[in-house]
Design a binder for these strands. Structure first.
Length: 557
RNA sequence: AGGGGUGUCGCCAAGUGGUAAGGCACCGGAUUUUGAUUCCGGCAUCCGUUGGUUCGAAUCCAGCCACCCCUGCCA
């Protein structure tokens, strides 16, 4: 288990610390408030780590609250996966899961309070008229003709909206603020709409649903949230957040603080676009290992610890940012480096016949599962007359600097003998069929005498190796910012080679590995037994989570 | 009649008047039966820009410039 790194200072921590120091709060309460309308992605992971992490670090609490105010888009499937993802990332929310819908009755009551204070009114403008009356970025809006209705009439109308007397979309409840505000969110925002839709929690109990801006601040206050953290696009909504809480009888006023969303190179992090990729079958599903979803990263083989470390490294700020893939990959490698057992696998096999192999004389060696962790144990790495080596590890015409096998050259078989390539056997088309090699019997566990063999390659005894389906993943997009240009469809940057499936060989030691077991296949990368299709002892399926760093490949360009 | 934000190394990001942290990436070099890991070393005379205040400014002031967000009965 890798040790957690020290927290990194950022402006929200500074605010929390100042509030704790000044006594403004005895302890903090944060919340992670997803809408159950899609799967969580790496950007949500940042928010989860922030909110739950803060609660952890300052001995506070963090709630999980579903913002379920739009029944048309929400589903139980999403709500369940979100809970699973939060837990998988290693966090536990305080108490039960909360739902904004738990507060529908209270929300209704506060709306009545606003009406009674003359601060909300029922408006009968059509959606088109409402838009027209709102004005534009450069021009003030105009008051709705329904704006000056009396309190009693508004109260009656709102009650009848709830009672289902009016058709969907025919009326809304609006906050009476300022149609001339330069902040469009304050131009008498709609706070309730009529929508006859089946809600995942409340069923058909309601036909009116509160809007986000109205719901979120009250939900926060009801839960005693101290710091309500959200992304930058809600900065303009803060005056409304504050307006609602300032105008109802509620004894709590959380502070909303905004930070910038995470953008990741070679990925898209917009629920809409991710949903599109799923619906259009560009990927196999929300958990396709190429997706930047938490489910996808999990299936790929990324670890919760690695993702948490990633969140820590990228920091929290208010500036727009596009984080290098190398940061995420580095975190995953670093975590897996210390905890993944090493075994060998060959993904692009070339047969090698060891001409001087002698049964009963040529012996095997034991190999530890991890160079720095003897406690991981070891296994026998058997050898036989025929072995598989990686096609990339042999070259007839090697480039300068090559350390692997060449005709007439020597190379070390990892945990075994040094071999020399004596003959290259080809078919009629000139393709290599097999390599004839001889081993130096005096090199098992020791260096050859009188010469140095620099190259070490991985290999597998053909007699003992197990077949495995191996899925090699590459970035989903061909450019770092596939959705940077609004006029260019991001689909055109889909990487056609983002998935390569090969039939390779693995060591018998992984035969019974449970799904989600991670290994380092030496010299190839970190791999994870597929969560869904890998069957221990039956059908072996491994996903490549991330390659190893490869300074040779880099040097080759 | 517009409003709200952001600009510090290729990418993140500390710093909040006392003379530019850290991470990733990158470049050297050492060790290595993973061209991995590990280990050493290098990597912003400069903080969007122009002026100003000050003994002293990335930090304060003014003006410019660039980019992001906002006109859902979405969140």
């Amino acid at each position: 288990m890798s040790s957690e790194h020290a927290p990194v200072s950022h402006f929200i921590r500074n605010i929390v610390e100042a509030d704790l120091a000044s006594g403004k709060h005895k302890s903090i309460v944060t919340r992670f408030p997803p809408e159950p309308n899609g799967y969580l992605h790496v950007g949500h992971a940042k928010s989860i780590c922030l909110n739950f992490g803060l609660a952890q670090d300052y001995a506070g609490r963090c709630n999980l609250r579903f913002d379920d105010t739009n029944p048309e888009k929400e589903s139980e499937e999403y709500a369940n996966s979100i809970q699973e993802d939060v837990r998988w990332l290693g966090f536990q929310w305080a108490g039960e899961v909360r739902w904004a819908s738990d507060y529908f009755e209270a929300l209704y009551g506060y709306a009545v309070e606003l009406i009674e204070k003359g601060l909300a009114y029922v408006c009968e403008l059509t959606p088109e008229e409402t838009r027209e009356y709102r004005g534009s970025l450069n021009a003030p809006g105009r008051n709705s003709p329904y704006r000056e209705r009396g309190v009693a009439e508004n109260r009656d109308l709102f009650a009848r909206m709830r009672a289902g007397e009016f058709p969907d979309g025919s009326r809304v409840l609006r906050a009476k603020i300022d149609m001339a505000s330069p902040n469009i969110n304050l131009r008498d925002p709609v706070i309730y709409r009529i929508r006859r839709a089946h809600h995942i929690r409340t069923g058909d109990a309601w036909c009116i649903y509160p809007m986000y801006d109205y719901t979120h601040c009250i939900s926060d206050a009801l839960e005693g949230i101290t710091h309500s953290l959200c992304t930058l696009e809600f900065e303009d909504h803060r005056p409304l957040y504050d307006w609602v809480l300032d105008n109802i009888s509620i004894g709590c006023h959380p502070q909303q603080i905004e930070f910038s969303r995470l953008e990741l190179q070679y990925a898209v992090t917009s629920k809409r676009k991710l949903l599109q990729l799923v619906n259009e079958k560009r990927v196999s599903g929300w958990d396709d290992p190429r997706m930047p979803t938490i489910q996808g990263m999990r299936r790929r083989g990324y670890t919760p610890e690695g993702i948490r470390e990633f969140a820590r490294r990228i920091g929290i700020s208010k500036s727009d940012n596009v984080v290098d893939m190398s940061v995420l990959e580095g975190c995953i490698r670093e975590d897996l480096e210390t905890r993944a057992p090493r075994v060998m696998a060959v993904i692009q096999p070339v047969k090698v016949v060891l001409s001087n192999f002698e049964p009963g004389v040529t012996s095997s060696r034991e190999a530890g599962f991890h160079p720095n962790h003897p406690e991981f144990g070891s296994r026998e790495v058997p050898i036989s007359r025929e072995i598989w080596i990686e096609a990339d590890d042999f070259a007839e015409n090697p480039p300068p600097g090559w350390q692997r096998l060449v005709p007439g050259g020597e190379v070390r078989l990892r945990y075994s003998y040094v071999i020399r390539c004596d003959e290259v056997v080809k078919d009629g088309d000139g393709n290599i069929v097999e390599l004839r090699c001889s081993l130096d019997p005096n090199t098992l566990g020791k260096n050859p005498e009188g010469r140095k063999v620099k190259g070490v390659i991985h290999w597998l005894s053909a007699e003992h190796a197990l077949p495995a389906e191996i899925r090699l993943y590459d970035r989903l997009f061909t450019v770092p910012e596939p959705d940077a240009d609004k006029d260019v469809d991001f689909h055109q940057y889909l990487n056609p080679a983002s998935l390569t499936v090969v039939n390779g060989w693995v060591e018998a030691a992984v035969r019974d590995a449970a799904p989600e077991t991670r290994y380092q296949f030496e010299r190839l990368g970190y791999f994870c037994a597929d969560r869904r299709e890998h069957q221990p002892g039956e059908k072996l399926v491994f996903n490549r989570a991330v390659t190893l760093k490869d300074s040779w490949a880099k040097e080759q360009g």
